[in-house]
Design a protein around this nucleic acid. Sequence first.
DNA 1: GAACCGGCGGGACAAATGTCCTTTTTATTT
DNA 2: AAATAAAAAGGACATTTGTCCCGCCGGTTC
Lengths: 187, 187
Amino acid sequence: MLRTNNTFLSYFEQLYNSQQRKEEILIKEFSAGQLILQQGQNAPKVYSIKEGITKCFFDEGDDKGFIVEFLGKGEVIGDIEVIKNMPCLCNIQALTPVQVYAISVPFTRSLLEKDLLFNKLMLDSFAERIINTSTRASFQQLHTVEHTLAKLLELQKAQGLDISKEDMAAYLGITIRSLNRTLKKLL
Amino acid sequence: MLRTNNTFLSYFEQLYNSQQRKEEILIKEFSAGQLILQQGQNAPKVYSIKEGITKCFFDEGDDKGFIVEFLGKGEVIGDIEVIKNMPCLCNIQALTPVQVYAISVPFTRSLLEKDLLFNKLMLDSFAERIINTSTRASFQQLHTVEHTLAKLLELQKAQGLDISKEDMAAYLGITIRSLNRTLKKLL
DNA sequence: GAACCGGCGGGACAAATGTCCTTTTTATTT
DNA sequence: AAATAAAAAGGACATTTGTCCCGCCGGTTC
């Protein structure tokens, strides 16, 4: 549920350090609660998370929202938007103070065109996202909320991650009322 | 809902024709109903659909299933498994008679390692899958079955695709009973 | 044509989930 | 410590969805 990617982390770290004029990749900070990317807007840069935790979620006009995943160290955002040349698919919000490598769009494009290693890392990361997203969608459709919630709590404990009830509900696609009820059932 | 990829189609077509000894890429046929890939088993080859329609779905022991998507011309299967070196994530079944380019695993790997165009095509295709899967997951969680079903029927009509009720239910993650009820509500 | 399937649709009740609003808890101020 | 405000939890009812089962309909067999 909290995804990370160490390979990307060191890849960008190295790229960052080997720049002559520190123009293509900058380090940028966001405070907790800040929106890093906004659904529907163009992404100004591609980011790779250096430190902190973010959530990636869809907004639907009203107050409803659906959390796609939580992203931590190394995870890249804005990449899909550059590749498909489209505005942001969903929102990315900092849950903790966050530090990122901010990579310029043209530089990202040049990596895509020239760097096989970068391509390989991207493919690997995309593959994992597909596995995660489709497995989860299937799981949540096929199992009871009780079952899914139990699994979620396990993962949360295993990763020492704590999430607000609101976010848990948005992750499960249920209301808080329903979450509370199910929480009781699990003791 | 029925995904296709013309770029891949012509890419493999060309590769197929330019082989000297027709060893790396073969054309293979499956009859309607046949399982092309089985969840949990190793994928013997990577396939690209030349003709026909398939469904990609998860199995859960019992009779429950969840349909991830329907794949048509050009779509590639078994690719994720090669990249992540893992057994098949889900089942792929032919819905109509299907013809595929069957690409050997080693050859796929060599394309991944050497061919930037192939990498680009793969990234593009993966990006679309991510967009599709996460958008749909969000949509289905956030909207009523009625709303989602209406959308599904639209798409189906637009694509001239007809699906069994069983498959529609599996796609929506509901029972057939529930599907019938909602179908009535929409007239 | 009568008897017998087998598949599909729908009725009836049970379980799960959402909505609305009240009650309880927690935190904050004075 | 008492008072108040803000947030979280829970009760009650409405709606949705699932489960189980019955009856209708088309086809097949004798």
